[in-house]
Amino acid sequence: MYSVRLFAVRHARSFEWFYARFEAVMVALDPLFTRIGYERVERPVAAFERVTKRLLFDCKMCGQCVLSSTGMSCPMNCPKQLRNGPCGGVRPGGFCEVKPQMRCVWVQAWDGAARMKEGGKINDVQPPVDRNLEGSSSWLRVAREKAARSSEGSDAPRTAIARAFADARAHEPAAAPLAPEPAAAVRSGDAR
């Protein structure tokens, strides 16, 4: 919802606090998720994530959530889906070029980031979205990525995209994911 989305940005700092704790819980649950199987938890968790994040942020389930780096303003609501905005077309008063009645998602993002403790993360250059991950749970991805990272001791830069966008990769575990993806989390068969 648009008004709730604006509320989230105004309270970006509280959301940041909550999200940090929530992330810790998800990472702590990694052994449990592994035991049950990420494949099997994927669908219920993704369904719950879709409902809550749609209500709060108008989430589009890109599967690579970077809200903590974008002032709690979801970049997928930008009509150009910029991951590093705003574009040069912002209207006077901070309204969107394409949807003039909507406040620019990225003007909101920079405002939100200014309220956050670690708002500086908005300066990281974010990689392009991996369309294969659309619809999958970003929360589970964060748990997998962070657990894999801590078990390996460091973040193994195994892919060119993770190396090219190293800052975003360091701060946003779901960006340019490296941990093995369970089949249930990857869109397949609709490439044509």
Partner: peptide, 18 residues
């Protein structure tokens, strides 16, 4: 809008420098 201008910059820089 698969890329945005920044991910495009970083991509061409990767092509050029790496």
């Amino acid at each position: 809008f698969d890329f945005d201008s920044l991910s495009l910059l970083r991509t061409i820089r990767t092509m050029r420098d790496d």
